[in-house]
Simulated scan of single mutants.
Amino acid sequence: MNKEQIKLRSMILTALFAAIIGIMAQLTIPLPLVPITGQTLAIGLAATILGSKYGTLSVLLYLVIGSAGVPVFAEFSAGISKLIGPTGGFLVGFLPATFIMGIYLEKLGFTFKHALIANIIGMLITLFFGTIWLKISAALSWTAAFTSGFIPFLLVGMIKAGLASWLGVLIRKRLIQAKLLFTAKTDIQRSL
């Protein structure tokens, strides 16, 4: 398989994961300011399966599509207003979270243990960005922002981190075996 074909498959997976994030965003548990969604599970899967480059590109594509007006954000919402509204910090926080999770996994290995650590780090990064932006955009005190944008998501976030780690590592291995996902290591092995 040549480089162009590998790049095309990687771009298709990137677009597929942008769609998966949009679909998972519709699984919501409403809360007063920020709902609990399946988005963060999908973000964890994207980073764990695709790594830093294509995982982050899938999140960027998702944010661009949603900002352009396609209703892919939670509760079938869309538009730039979502990025500057109370939940905008969580959405923007997905970018550094995915990139850092991917880098961590690429450096230390795509194992369940490392995926779990990476997903917990990603959850904390997302909550950090979201809480800060919630405080600013909703003019809340630090205590109110922390109790409405951080604390309610810790337990559910840990569960999603575990699920994204387990499924992500499993799916990544299967995609590599099926020659649908390529890594530098698998590309080298194929050329021998």
Rank of each mutant, 00 (worst) to 15 (best):
M1P: 03
N2K: 05
K3E: 15
K3Q: 15
I6E: 10
K7I: 15
L8G: 04
L8R: 09
R9E: 04
S10C: 04
S10A: 13
M11V: 14
M11K: 03
T14M: 12
L16P: 01
L16R: 07
L16I: 14
F17S: 06
A19L: 07
A19N: 02
I20M: 11
I20D: 04
I21G: 06
G22D: 03
A25P: 03
T28H: 03
T28C: 08
T28K: 10
P30Y: 10
L31D: 05
L33C: 05
T37V: 03
T37L: 04
Q39C: 04
L41G: 11
A42S: 13
I43W: 01
L45S: 12
A47I: 07
A47P: 06
I49T: 08
K53A: 05
K53N: 08
Y54N: 14
G55K: 04
G55P: 04
G55E: 07
S58T: 01
V59H: 01
V59W: 03
L61D: 02
L61S: 12
L61R: 12
V64N: 02
G69A: 08
P71S: 06
V72H: 02
V72L: 13
A74R: 01
A74H: 13
E75N: 14
F76I: 07
I84N: 10
G85H: 04
G85T: 10
G85Q: 10
G89R: 01
F90K: 09
V92A: 12
V92K: 02
G93P: 02
L95R: 00
L95I: 15
L95H: 02
P96V: 01
A97M: 05
T98I: 05
I100K: 11
G102A: 02
G102D: 03
G102K: 13
I103S: 06
I103P: 03
K107P: 00
K107S: 02
F112D: 09
A115V: 08
A115H: 00
I117R: 00
N119I: 11
I121L: 13
T126M: 12
L127A: 03
L127V: 13
F129G: 03
G130K: 00
G130S: 10
I132D: 01
W133D: 12
K135E: 13
I136D: 09
A139E: 15
A139L: 13
L140D: 09
S141C: 05
W142K: 02
W142C: 06
A145Y: 00
T147D: 11
G149T: 04
G149I: 07
P152L: 09
P152V: 13
M158A: 14
G162W: 07
L163S: 05
G168C: 08
L170E: 11
I171N: 08
R174E: 15
Q177H: 07
L181G: 08
L181W: 10
T183V: 13
K185S: 15
K185R: 10
K185Q: 14
T186I: 12
D187P: 07
D187A: 14
I188G: 01
I188Y: 13
R190Q: 15
R190N: 15
R190F: 12
R190D: 15
L192M: 14
